[in-house]
Design a protein around this nucleic acid. Structure first.
Lengths: 209, 209, 209, 209
DNA sequence: TATGAATGAGGGTTCATTCAT
DNA sequence: GATGAATGAACCCTCATTCAT
């Protein structure tokens, strides 16, 4: 009856289950969409009866919220952990980070974009605020580079969205082992982004146009 | 009296109902997602009982299919109708067309990207083939411009996806009457795209790098 | 505008359709059961839209009623038409007639037994009365033969039911081209029936039992 | 306290519910036919909401299957339990058993004959194989008796069907408290069956015919 | 923490039938 | 006599969730 030991064990087991619930839900939501996934399916993946899920998450919505919140939090944490080197252009750093992270976490990224509308208003606001924080990192980089003359950006906010949309599209078609390596994709996109914000390009534009 | 042209009233009424079903479904699917919309809701929007929907579409899936197919078809038709002028760079033509069309038909565009996974395999293949045809228009422009030296594009296929992702992201945040007019957005994005594929930009890149 | 001619033609066409409705319903009811058959299926078989059925039969129930009534009527008519010969035992005549008719009209017979419970009370009474008339033919034969000493029947009413159940079971397993010809089956069953009602059999019974 | 035997209360309750579902479905299917009975009706009989039925049976079809399988199984088990006495003719034993059992379990018997066509193919095959086993008991008796000269049977397989059809028809008209007791019916049918297979009857037949 | 039974609502779809044309 | 559109009810089944055990 070693009560003192039993409780932590049980708690550990419970946390383990919770993690497996998140993992299963992530895959299912990414594949079929939040609305098309049933708690029964998640429970079956976890190897548990539907009722047991409610010991870990009060509602299906909370599973979605947990997935999206932890994704945004992980994303911001990972960004902070990328090495900052004075010689590297910060835009390069952001673009490479964004592509790498989004290819590694394709499912999380995918549901973070696709399932926004399935968040209840309060949860939506929470997630959106995190997303803005992330996007503002790029906006800051663009504004600073623009002010220093390294970039030519007409509207940092619009450019932020343009770049992020462009980069975030990659996981929708990239397949490991395909024609291009991840490194090649990084290089290709980095080149396009650099040029898109390059200051001298305006002149060349006139020459072409 | 135009007797020869007259159709039975009931048939005309039925076609009108079918159109209203599509209209209602489009709005609902765009707002809540295919899986989260019920036939009952669509019927209520149309002002008809649920069973009546099945006089016009055999299944819910067929409504989605009809929406997506007609969107792709309209898109390709609209592109063919854009005026071709020898003085205009074809990339400009494509970018402006794409932005305008996608802002005008935000709902159609949105479900065409979001609901792909809710298409049954056969329908998915059909839609994907239409989408490829559209994307290939841009790829062709890029390849031709690249060959003639007007653009510098390392991989026309990747660049196509990058540009389309960038442009297609616009309707997710653009709101009529917001800070920027549609014209301004067109100009901003066009500038970015031009620069991203500009041949001289490579030099500036070296200068910045 | 030969009105006088047109109407009969139209009526003829209508009667033709009505017949095809009955034919289609007969097959469907026999295969799947009244409750499992939809008016749409019948209409499709006939090559007509569901609404058109209601020009010929006011309800689905009326189709069933028409099928069963005409079956009973045809059955009684056919019996009356069988040749009566003084040399033939009337039981032989009945048994052979019953088997032949029931093998020829397997579908009609089948639904006449299976769908009794799907008849509305008034229709049920009507059909049951016809069925009794038919069964009473056999009862009469048995009673008369019993009175004259040709048969030994303890309870003509029970024997009637026993014989009819036995004979009516044939179409559930008989398949044309099977091991036994229709003639052989007739002979086998006739032998069994004759023996079952034979007066001397009681003795043999004592000898065996 | 019998701890080792105790089951969770909920499990016991569930099994009880399952039994009541079968009981309710049996009555309903026997009265109206499988196709005409709704899950809602069964649920109402059981005193439960429709969805709860699916905790016990995955589909409506499975209820039918369970009813028919357990009927066939019970029937075969009951036959094996009938006392075998060397003095009793085995045909007598079978006839009396069949009549008694079929009058006691009129509903089960009825749906076992009526609802065969509503079984999905796999289930149909399963049931048919059980039915054959039962019918083969009688065929075996007839063949053995025929070989030993106690019976005269031209075709044991046909005779089996004839006898079973005859006997199985009884519950369609027998009503408790009617003109005849169950015992009287048994005797009447037994007499007919004995005579139908009696060896000496052939002679009497010649005398009559 | 996990189970099995249950709920109450609602899912997509089909039904027999009506009716203006 | 036939059509196409519509109705209103009902179909089987699944859903997220609750709760006693």
């Amino acid at each position: 009856m070693t009560i003192g030991v039993e409780k932590p064990l049980s708690r550990a087991k419970g946390q383990e289950t919770a993690k497996r619930v998140l993992r299963a839900a992530l895959k299912r939501f990414a594949d079929a969409g939040y609305a098309a996934v049933s708690m029964r399916e998640i429970a079956a993946d976890v190897g548990v009866r539907p009722g047991a899920l409610y010991n870990h998450f009060p509602t299906k919505q909370d599973i979605l919220r947990a997935l999206m919140l932890s994704h945004m939090s992980d994303l911001l944490t990972a960004w902070k952990k990328t090495e900052f080197s004075p010689e590297t252009d910060p835009l390069d750093r952001f673009v490479r980070f964004h592509i790498r992270y989004h290819l590694e976490r394709a499912d999380e990224v995918f549901i973070s974009y696709m399932e926004l509308r399935n968040l209840e208003p309060a949860n939506f606001a929470e997630i959106e605020s995190e997303r803005s924080r992330y996007e503002f990192i790029l906006t800051g980089i663009l504004e600073e580079g623009s002010a220093s003359g390294r970039y030519a950006v007409d509207d940092a906010s619009v450019t932020t969205r343009a770049i992020i949309a462009m980069l975030t599209g990659i996981p929708t078609w990239y397949r490991e082992g395909g024609r291009l390596s991840e490194q090649q994709i990084e290089d290709l996109y980095l080149t396009m982004v650099r040029k898109a914000v390059a200051p001298l390009a305006m002149k060349s534009q006139r020459e072409i146009g």
